[in-house]
C-alpha cells in the first residue's frame, strides 16, 4: 500500500487563518486566532471595541504583518506578502475609515479598482488566480496603449469601465448620478458605498468589509444588507468576511459568526448560537462583579 499523506497546509479552497497573532509592544491585539472562510460563505466577525477585529483585517489584507501564525488562500501563503499582491490574488477589502481617494471624482475613484485587473490583460481578479500570481503588462505597452489609444488597450479599458459602471450602479441612484463629483463631497454613508463599489469593481473572489454599515441609519443599513444578499445570490462562490457592530445586519446575512474578545476567539457558530451565548453577552455588556462595591473606600 502506498500511503498518500495529506499535503501540508491542504489545498482546500477558501481563506484559512491558522493560529494568527499580532502583538504590539506587549499588548496582544490578536492572539492565536483561527477560522476558515469558504467560497460562497458569509462570515461575520464581531466583538466589543478593542477586540482585535480590525487588526485581523489588517493582517489578512497584508497591511500589517503577523507576529505568528499562517494565512492561506487555497494553498497560497498570504502572510508575508504585501497588500498589493494579496489584492491581486483576488482579495478585496474596505477600510474602517472609508478610503476613497478624496480629491478624485467618484467615477475615477471606482475606476481605480479596475486598474489592477486591466494590467493583468483585461481579466478580472477571479479568473485563474494562481497562474504566475498575475503578471502585469509591460509598462511601455501601457504607455503606448494610453498615449496612442491602441485598439487592444481601448477594448480592455472599455471592459474595465463597464465593470466600474456595474459596481457603481449596484447602489441605485446613490452614486451613479454623482459620478463627476469629487469623492470628498459625498456623505459619510455614500463614501462607504463608494469604497465597497471600488472593491467590487475588481471582481474579487473574497471580500473583507470593515464596518460597512458604520454611519448609516437603520434604513440605509437595511439597504446595504439587501445589497450584500443580492451579491451573494449573483456570485455563489464569493466569500465575504464582514466586521460589523450592527448585529441586526449580522443576524440577517451571516452564515457563521466568529466572536472575538481581547484578541481571542470567544465563540463560533450560527448567528443565533454565537450571539446568544452567555459568554458573548457578557463580553458585550460586561460581567457582573463578584465583590460588593462599598467594601474598601479609603482614598480621599
Amino acid at each position: 500500500m502506498v500511503h498518500s499523506l495529506p499535503t501540508p497546509g491542504s489545498t482546500q479552497p477558501g481563506l484559512h487563518v491558522q493560529g494568527l497573532s499580532r502583538h504590539f509592544s506587549g499588548v496582544k491585539a490578536v492572539d492565536d486566532v483561527s477560522f476558515d472562510l469558504l467560497p460562497g460563505e458569509i462570515l461575520a466577525l464581531v466583538g466589543p471595541n478593542g477586540a482585535g477585529k480590525s487588526t485581523l483585517i489588517q493582517l489578512v489584507s497584508g497591511v500589517e504583518r503577523p507576529t505568528a501564525g499562517r494565512i492561506l488562500l487555497g494553498d497560497v501563503r498570504l502572510d508575508g506578502r504585501g497588500p498589493e499582491r494579496i489584492a491581486r490574488l483576488g482579495m478585496g477589502r474596505s477600510f474602517q475609515t472609508s478610503r476613497v481617494f478624496p480629491a478624485l471624482t467618484v467615477w475615477d475613484s471606482v475606476r481605480l479598482g479596475t486598474q489592477a485587473g486591466l494590467l493583468r490583460g483585461g481579466g478580472t481578479m477571479h479568473k485563474d488566480p494562481g497562474s504566475g500570481h498575475g503578471r502585469l503588462s509591460n509598462p511601455l505597452a501601457e504607455i503606448a496603449g494610453e498615449l496612442l489609444g491602441l485598439p487592444g488597450w481601448r477594448r480592455r479599458r472599455a471592459e474595465a469601465d463597464a465593470r466600474a459602471e456595474t459596481a457603481l450602479k449596484r447602489f441605485g441612484d446613490r452614486l451613479w448620478p454623482r459620478r463627476d463629483q469629487p469623492a470628498f463631497s459625498l456623505s459619510y454613508a455614500n463614501r462607504r458605498r463608494l469604497e465597497i463599489a471600488r472593491v467590487l469593481a475588481a471582481e474579487p473572489r473574497y471580500v473583507l468589509l470593515d464596518e460597512p454599515a458604520a454611519g448609516m441609519n437603520p434604513s440605509e443599513t437595511a439597504e446595504l444588507t439587501d445589497l450584500l444578499l443580492a451579491l451573494r445570490a449573483e456570485q455563489p462562490t464569493l466569500g465575504l468576511l464582514v466586521v460589523e457592530h450592527k448585529l441586526s445586519l449580522v443576524r440577517r446575512i451571516a452564515d457563521r459568526v466568529v466572536v472575538l474578545n481581547q484578541g481571542r476567539v470567544l465563540a463560533t457558530g450560527t448567528p443565533a448560537e454565537a450571539l446568544d451565548d452567555p459568554e458573548v453577552v457578557e463580553a458585550y455588556l460586561g460581567r457582573r462583579r463578584t465583590r460588593p462595591a462599598e467594601s474598601d473606600a479609603h482614598l480621599g
Partner: peptide, 13 residues
C-alpha cells in the same frame, strides 16, 4: 490621495 488604499486596491504603486 491615498497610498495605502492604492496598495490595497492591488495597484502596483
Amino acid at each position: 490621495e491615498d497610498r495605502l488604499a492604492a496598495h490595497a486596491a492591488g495597484l502596483p504603486v
